[in-house]
Each structure stands twice: as structure tokens, then as C-alpha cells.
Amino acid sequence: MATETDTHAADVAANVAHAADAAAADGGSSLVFHPMDQFIVKPLFGYGEVGMFTITNVTLWLFLAIVAIFGLMVLGTSRRAVVPSRSQSIAELAYGFVHKMVEDVTGKDGLKYFPYIMTLFMFIVFANFLGLLPMSFTTTSHFAVTVVLALAVFLTVTVLGFVKNGAGFLSLFWVASAPLALRPILAIIEIISYFVRPVSHSIRLAGNLMAGHAVIKVFAGFAAIVAVSPIAIVAIVAMYGLEILVAFIQAYVFTILTCVYLKDALHPHH
């Protein structure tokens, strides 16, 4: 009985608070905005709970990212010419950029894994930039997406390390150049840092994008106040420009860390 009463009281309090917020917003006496609402996963069709097979806003924007990549890398380069079109130039620039990154970090041995790394880079770049469009959804701001990407890299390089080097892959954790007394301690540190890789790899990408989009939303809320709207608008423009830079940098950081992990798998010796 007490539980039912408490539940009813909580519902009434929530309804009152919601009505007060709405009335305050309508009256202009306060500002009500929720910067984290933009990260809510919602069904694309209808309402209700999100299940395993529910088509959501995340599904839509993941699909759009794939379509955009296909449009640039396949359709945009279908008519290859000596004097390239804009789309062909962008595709060739991206190809050359990632190819040089893989070669510089992993060496010639890592180039056979270039298609995977190129796909990873292009997906993150397009997902990040599509998330900057008005009314869009930033899929890479969700840990459910970035953790899958990071785990895929972690498992791939770990399996590859054992396949290529056998038990010799364990030399990655044994710092032979250090004094013998310190090697066991350093081995423990190396093992911990190795298994923390997918955590830091995923949090860095999602955390930076989530924080930036939340700040933009906060400034957008303050833009409704006449007294501070000019400052808020300038702040929004500045933050938006910064987020464009962050969108590319985070894709680059995620990709180059993947190359570093791949290098460790191919050449594990310190």
C-alpha cells in the first residue's frame, strides 16, 4: 500500500514539475532545455520500447553514413579521369592520407590490412560529420557504437598477434631492455594497459563528441534569452567550428591508434 502511495505521489510531483516548466517556458520567466535529449535512442516508426530488432534513429544515421561512403568512394570515382572531379579528388585524398598513415606506422607489412583501416576511418569521419547536421543524430557519440568498433580492433589485433607470432606475441608485455628486477612489475603494467585499450579507445571518441554536442545545445538554449543571445550565437558559431575540427581529429586519432595496435601485433618485440 505504501509503495502504491509513493508511486502515485511521485507521478503527481513529476506532472506538477512538468506543468511548472511548461508554464515558465510559455511565460518567458525561465529557460527550459535538455542538452542530453539529443542522444536519446528512439524508434524511427511509432512509439514504444526499443528492442533488438527495432529500427531507430541510430539505425537511420548509420545507414546514411554507409550510403554517403558508397556515394563518395564508389559513385564518386566511377568515372575516373586524368583531371579528377571534386568527388574523385576527395576520395583520392582520403585514400592517400590513410594509406600513408598505415605505411608510416605499421610499415609495409601492415598495408595488407589497409582496406579494414580505410573503412574504419571513412565510417567514423562520415558518422561524425553527419552528426553535425541540424536535426541529425550523432551515432559515434554512443558508447554502444564506439565500444563495438574498439572491441573489433582489439580482438582483431590480438588474434592476429598470436597467429603471426605464436607465443612470441607475449614478448609485447616483457620489456627486455629494462633492468631484470623491474621486468615483472612492468609486465603487469603492460598487461593492464593492453586490456584497457578498448576502454580508452571507445571513450575518447564518444566522450569528445558527446561533450561538444551538449555544449552547443546549451549555448543554443541561452540564445533564446534576448539579453545574452548575441554572445550565445557567437559561442555557437565558435563551438560549431571547433566541432568540425574535432570530428576529423577524433577519426584520425581512432585510426592512428588502430595502426599502433596493429604494429604491436605484427612486431611485438620491445
Rank of each mutant, 00 (worst) to 15 (best):
S177V: 00
P179Y: 11
L180H: 06
L180E: 11
R183Y: 01
I185H: 02
I185D: 00
I185V: 08
I189A: 15
E190N: 14
I191E: 04
I192N: 02
Y194V: 12
F195A: 02
F195L: 07
V196Q: 09
R197Q: 03
V199M: 02
H201R: 05
S202M: 02
I203E: 00
R204A: 06
R204G: 09
A206R: 03
N208K: 14
N208C: 09
L209M: 12
L209F: 00
M210I: 06
M210E: 13
G212S: 03
H213K: 10
H213T: 02
A214S: 10
A214F: 01
A214G: 01
V215T: 08
V215D: 08
I216D: 00
A223W: 03
V226N: 13
A227Y: 15
S229N: 03
S229W: 00
P230F: 00
A232V: 13
A232G: 11
A235G: 04
V237K: 13
V237S: 08
A238I: 14
L242P: 13
E243Q: 15
V246D: 09
V246R: 11
A247C: 14
F248W: 13
F248I: 11
Q250H: 00
V253L: 14
F254D: 03
I256K: 09
L257R: 14
L257Y: 11
L257C: 10
C259G: 01
V260S: 10
L262Y: 04
L262S: 05
K263T: 05
